[in-house]
Amino acid sequence: MPRWGMVIDLDKCFACQSCTAACRMENNTPVAGQDQAEMGRAILWNEVLPFVEGEYPNIVETMIPRPCMHCDNPACIKVCPVQATFKNEEGVVLVDYDRCIGCRLCTVACPYTVRYFNWYQPEWPEALKEHLNPEPEVKPRPKGVVEKCTFCTQRLRKAREEAEAAGRVFNATDYIPACVQTCTGHARYFGDLDDPNSLVSKLAHSPRAFRLFEELGTQPKVYYLKQG
């Protein structure tokens, strides 16, 4: 069983936000509109966040793309009262939209603020509505539930189905999430962290590798390669 993980090379990322856009098209996240976005209610499973260190004018700015960290010891799962959020056997943290009661304890518990709440019924302008991804995993979520990055779980299922149809064994390299596929700077790597020969596992062990808030013990499966 693979243990899916991601590595993002901050040297290669130039904050073009293609990943954010690709994620939205792949996962049908609703259009919030300007007023809602200003209130902090936009749903973006992936964001590129600016981190500024130092005082002006001596500042260092790092742009950090931030999907869900798919923690191995996730703060969100511990607190969910109905197990609406859970980790599957491949280490991917998912949400059951039909079970979530919308208590938002997971959203306040996640140290990475990556969980989004559906404040309203999701909406799209007509033109976009025609292009929604038809996969069942990403059908529009109801209002009142929590959602977040799934490492494009629908793509994994499809990759498995394709491998089966073609009569070959499924290989970890058959599947990558939309953000990894789109990344203009080739900054994102994806694969099986448990396979010592995989590129992600090698990169995750590089001296440049770090994880966000490692000290919290959440054991994220998203690694970053230090800038510079």
């Binding site: 607190v79 109905v82 079970r99 979530c100 919308g102 304890l105």
Partner: peptide, 25 residues
């Protein structure tokens, strides 16, 4: 708590699927 919930009508999920690991329970 009920008023705060996104899906108050799913309150019974607490009984069907409730898990005592959660402070809400």
């Amino acid at each position: 708590i009920l008023i705060d919930m996104g899906h108050p009508e799913r309150i019974l999920n607490l009984i069907f699927y409730g898990r005592f690991q959660s402070p809400i329970m």
